[in-house]
């Protein structure tokens, strides 16, 4: 028994405070800085991406004129007289995006309306995780699915369809985006307060009328934002189009023929044997820059829509 330690908790605490002060102060002073640096990593990443793209693209434009890049409709990087006109890749990308949106928007939105307006709580608890699983399927798996299932199916339906075409990957990219559009739209619709719905129902509206005339207009900004974000995903999608779309950069719009998107071109070069420092190597940065700008604009647009048209209940 040590009589000197016979003291109250308060004295014990007081004693500890005096001893441990410096260590505690260090943490108190230091941690905010450490945490700030963690948060700043994301800013550094953005700077890194922009610097990478700008610096390497500069090498590309030392050889290829901007006029050719935006003016020419031929993308022949492998020719003895290579031509770098970006339009075929842009057209291919947009073709895929349009097909994808034709699939994803109607299905994504009807799913969202059903989940938010019709489904019981129990049904929702089952259905939403399944949509989440669909959202978690890797793109490589979707690519495999496009090539081994969707394309053969389409060939049966459309005689003369090329094995590599824009239609099949377009549809599958659309399927990939469904969960994204559905879940963002559903969030927007679910956040329309119950009292607004009840008000409409009490006037004798049917569920459909409530959904289309009350909920959808109120949630419109979220719905549009989901579509814009979906488009951005479609533009940036890589593996599905690489696997099932072929590698034929063409400015002609025909979904039944092979295409090449911006992303697929980048992969093609990365897998090929274009040496470091060649113009072909630098071309992927030029294409990447354009891709980055496209998706960034889409994301900014989606952000702006949600912020600008946010409903206040």
């Amino acid at each position: 028994m040590n009589s000197s330690s016979n003291k109250s908790v308060r004295e014990l605490i007081q004693q500890n405070r005096q001893q441990k002060f410096s260590m505690k102060n260090v943490m108190e002073r230091f941690m905010p800085i450490v945490l700030f640096l963690c948060a700043f990593v994301s800013v550094v990443t953005t700077i890194g991406i922009i610097l990478t793209l700008v610096l390497e693209t500069r090498h590309f434009f030392e050889v290829v004129s901007i006029k050719e890049f935006f003016g020419s409709t031929n993308w022949y990087p492998l020719n003895s007289q290579p031509e770098y006109g970006i339009w075929p890749l842009v057209v291919g990308t947009l073709e895929i995006t349009v097909i994808a949106m034709l699939v994803a928007v109607p299905i994504g939105l009807t799913s969202a309306i059903y989940l938010s307006e019709y489904a019981s709580e129990r049904a929702r608890r089952v259905l939403k995780p399944i949509l989440e699983v669909l959202a978690g399927v890797p793109t490589i798996v979707f690519g495999f699915f496009a090539l081994t299932f969707v394309t053969p199916l389409l060939v049966k339906l459309i005689p003369g369809l090329a094995i590599y075409n824009a239609l099949s990957p377009g549809i599958v990219v659309g399927i990939m985006i469904i969960p994204m559009i559905a879940s963002i739209s559903e969030d927007a619709m679910s956040s329309v307060p119950k009292k607004i719905r009840d008000g409409a129902l009490a006037l004798g509206s049917t569920r459909l009328e409530v959904a289309l005339k009350v909920v959808v207009p109120a949630a419109l900004s979220g719905i549009i934002a989901s579509i814009v974000l979906g488009m951005s995903r479609a533009i940036g999608e890589t593996m599905i189009v690489t696997i099932a779309g072929g590698s034929n950069p063409t400015a002609l719009v025909n979904p039944l023929e092979p295409v090449q998107t911006m992303t697929a071109y980048i992969v093609q070069v990365a897998l090929g044997d274009a040496g470091f420092g060649t113009i072909e190597y630098y071309s992927i940065y030029a294409v990447g820059t354009l891709l980055f700008v496209f998706t960034l604009l889409m994301n900014l647009l989606a952000n702006w829509i949600t912020r600008r048209f946010r409903e206040e209940y």
């Binding site: 028994m1 040590n2 330690s5 016979n6 003291k7 109250s8 908790v9 308060r10 004295e11 007081q14």
Partner: peptide
């Protein structure tokens, strides 16, 4: 270490 606490909390503030 064998420490025993006084059971009565101090009534006065430390100061």
């Amino acid at each position: 270490m064998d420490t025993k606490l006084t059971t009565k909390p101090a009534k006065e503030g430390v100061k």
